[in-house]
Simulated scan of single mutants.
Amino acid sequence: MTTRAEIDEAYANASHIPGGMAYPDRWAEAAAAFRAAHPPEEIAYGAGARHRLDLFWPESTARGAVVFVHGGFWKAFDKSTWSHLAAGALAQGWAVAMPSYTLAPEARIAAMTREIEAAIGAVAEAVPGPLRLAGHSAGGHLVARMACADLSPPWRDRVARIVPISPLSDLRPLMGATMNDDLRLDAAEAAAESPLLCDQVDLPMTVWVGAVERPAFLDQARWLAERRGCDLVEAPGRHHFDVIEELADPDSPLMRALLG
């Protein structure tokens, strides 16, 4: 039987990345500088304290909207940590939305799924045109959930592509992890909230993961791509923390996959 310590180690990232503990401060600093230069519009998509999203507008009429959902094992961060990652899509003429959502233990993952569904709905009302969804880690899970048949948002026919980045697609292994003290996953919720296990909706998807990520994250990405029958890209030399950096580069392979 796999122990709790072994599961925790399988999904640990910072301790396996050189300088890993410094990344959150670097993200926050870069995001603050970007917001100062490109102030976003803040939109409420619900009544909760964290039901807010930042919407960055391009200089010209938006071609559509990119929605980026952050990670943090559903327990950490908010919209303000990732603003700099809007640079790539903005340079290509897309509006970029970055929602916060209620974190564990205050909310369960099923509630977070519905919050992201509502956040994308608010973006769809604000920005005409196609929607392109990206998310990292837990955010990759949440955008992959938007392609599950138990959801039926009115905006879904506008989704041109979903790119889950280093996604968690099967939540069942996490029931044995220390993080589940906060997530409170049980067998029913873990199955219902796993994109790997849901009935699929036919939406274009590309699964993206760093080639040197932890084996558990490589497995999670590969499982989802196989289940969806979609492209899987293992980005050379990229780990769990720097795999998202290409979102800031309008000409990067990741941005080409997202924007087409």
Rank of each mutant, 00 (worst) to 15 (best):
R4E: 15
A5D: 12
A5R: 12
A5N: 07
E6W: 02
E9M: 12
Y11E: 00
A12P: 13
A14Y: 15
S15Y: 13
P18V: 02
M21V: 15
P24A: 06
R26V: 15
W27K: 04
A30C: 06
A30F: 02
A31L: 00
F34E: 11
F34G: 06
F34R: 05
H38L: 04
H38C: 07
P39F: 06
Y45S: 08
G46E: 06
G48T: 07
G48E: 09
G48W: 08
G48R: 05
A49T: 14
R50L: 14
R50C: 11
R52A: 08
L53C: 06
D54P: 13
D54C: 09
L55K: 12
F56W: 10
W57I: 11
S60V: 13
A62H: 03
G64N: 05
G64C: 02
A65M: 02
A65Y: 02
H70T: 10
G71H: 09
G72Y: 07
G72D: 04
W74Y: 01
A76C: 08
S80F: 07
S80Q: 14
T81Q: 15
W82V: 00
S83D: 03
L85G: 05
A87V: 07
A87E: 07
G88M: 03
Q92C: 10
W94A: 01
W94F: 06
W94T: 00
S100F: 04
Y101P: 01
Y101L: 00
P105T: 00
E106F: 13
M112F: 02
R114W: 14
R114V: 13
R114M: 11
I116M: 03
E117K: 14
G121P: 11
G121K: 09
A122I: 12
E125Q: 14
P128N: 01
P130I: 01
L133Y: 03
L133Q: 00
H136I: 05
G140H: 10
L142F: 04
V143T: 06
V143Y: 05
V143W: 08
A144I: 05
R145A: 08
M146H: 12
M146L: 15
C148K: 11
C148D: 10
S152G: 15
D157A: 11
R158V: 11
R161H: 13
I162F: 02
V163F: 10
S166D: 06
S169D: 08
D170F: 06
D170I: 03
D170L: 03
R172C: 03
L174Q: 01
G176P: 07
M179H: 12
L185R: 12
E193Y: 13
S194Q: 07
L196T: 01
L197C: 07
C198F: 00
D199G: 14
D202K: 15
W208N: 09
A211M: 00
A211V: 01
R214T: 08
L224G: 01
E226W: 09
G229H: 09
D231G: 14
L232S: 05
A235M: 02
F241A: 13
F241W: 10
F241G: 09
D242F: 10
E245Q: 11
A248V: 04
D249L: 04
P250V: 01
L254D: 09
L254W: 08
R256Y: 12
